[in-house]
Design a protein around this nucleic acid. Structure first.
Lengths: 219, 219
DNA sequence: ATATTCTGTTCAGGTTGATGTAAGGTTGGG
DNA sequence: CCCAACCTTACATCAACCTGAACAGAATAT
């Protein structure tokens, strides 16, 4: 499970990161809200551990904007104050659970696993981009309701772009997704596949960043 | 029981999901109609919990299209308005029950269990694909009315494809269904079984996704 | 016990459509 | 206006796939 940890306290952050790593999940740890926001744009996390009191803003704002943009990622809030008002605000904003400092790492592990279990039965995440819906797991695409079939290479390109959606993906990155590392290719294959994808998914599905690469917008 | 929850409100959705999970069912939760539609193509649910007021369309339209395509899955409608006209429209469209917001989770559980009980006595679900009807539980196939017998290997392949219908199933997935994990096979056995199934069930029953695997279309 | 049918697996030869390449057109920044 | 980057189309190639046939072993009938 991929976990995003947002916590400015170095001691607590390191402890949480190490513990979550030790029970077999991967962790991205940020100390600042805006860094976390940037990362959320490009990476699909399965859990967010969110401290409410951060140097550059209120954690609650991040939660609000996540839910406003229909991001259903489970969020566990970490807070120092055991205030009922904060709890209520968090739950109403779509938080999934609470941890009040100081907390036991074992308790964190338990709640985290509870979320993981809850999510295990969840369907494959579907990504909606305009009138295109993509199910990466089942390899299904529908364009304005009609299903549409992609070839294996087209999936490779789309997969790479969607997993980093919001960010610019370089041509060489996409080539690495297409061909086994090392096997060089001497043509404009990436351009061709982007063109083929655009033909199937719509002209505006993929935007070009001249000299840099390609990008699929988040939401 | 596998439940499809379509509800855009995060608080209500999470609460319903957790409660349904807690009484021992599995839940797929979508916030959007079109995502739910995609999932309905590939998964056979035993119950749909449908909010009528959704960001990308009317829930009632989904109900209509379900019934138009002869999908008998029970549907419980969730609505904020206790309007008699809506109730009548829903019932005439084939809804099985109603919940008017705000509702008690215990009430939801009770109605859900009522549906589960009603369904327990039902015969095995039959899957219709064109003029082919398959009963996976009892291992019966009929092609345009005439019954048709499959060998055990053919069942293994068909079962795997139908349980993921709509999705592309990779050759290795099918091999795993055929042979005990690990026992490698050095031939085109999967291709042969697909060919034999096509011969029995019709040329168009199984579609090939070159380089990816095979797929049986939903409906 | 023997014959017969059924089933699973492999192989070979034919078919097809995804793929990489190149050529020519288009676009946008400087 | 120019050039480089990018787009789009067409096409030959070849790996992936299809399918009929052969055959051995299992299951069933005689």
């Amino acid at each position: 499970m991929r976990v995003l940890l947002i916590e400015d306290d170095h001691v607590l952050g390191a402890a949480v990161r190490d513990h979550v790593l030790s029970i077999g999940h991967s962790v991205d740890w940020y100390q600042r809200l805006d860094e976390a926001r940037l990362s959320l744009q490009t990476i699909t996390y399965e859990l967010v551990l969110l401290d409410l009191n951060l140097p550059d803003g209120r954690g609650m704002d991040l939660l609000h904007s996540l839910r406003a943009s229909d991001n259903p990622v489970p969020v566990i809030i970490i807070t120092a104050q055991d205030q009922i008002t904060i709890r209520i605000e968090g739950l109403e904003s779509g938080a999934d659970d609470y941890l009040v400092k100081p907390f036991d790492l074992a308790e964190l592990g338990a709640r985290l696993n509870a979320v993981a279990r809850r999510y295990a039965g969840q369907p494959n995440p579907q990504i909606t981009m305009g009138n295109v819906i993509v199910d990466l797991g089942r390899k299904i695409v529908s364009v304005s309701g009609k299903s549409c079939s992609l070839t294996s290479r087209e999936w490779a390109v789309l997969d790479r772009l969607l997993r980093h959606r919001g960010a610019i993906v370089s041509k060489t990155d996409i080539e690495d997704a297409l061909y086994a590392f090392g096997s060089e290719i001497e043509s404009n294959a990436v351009e061709v596949y982007v063109s083929r994808l655009r033909k199937k998914l719509g002209r505006n599905s993929i935007t070009t960043a001249r000299g840099l690469g390609y990008r699929i917008d988040a939401q």
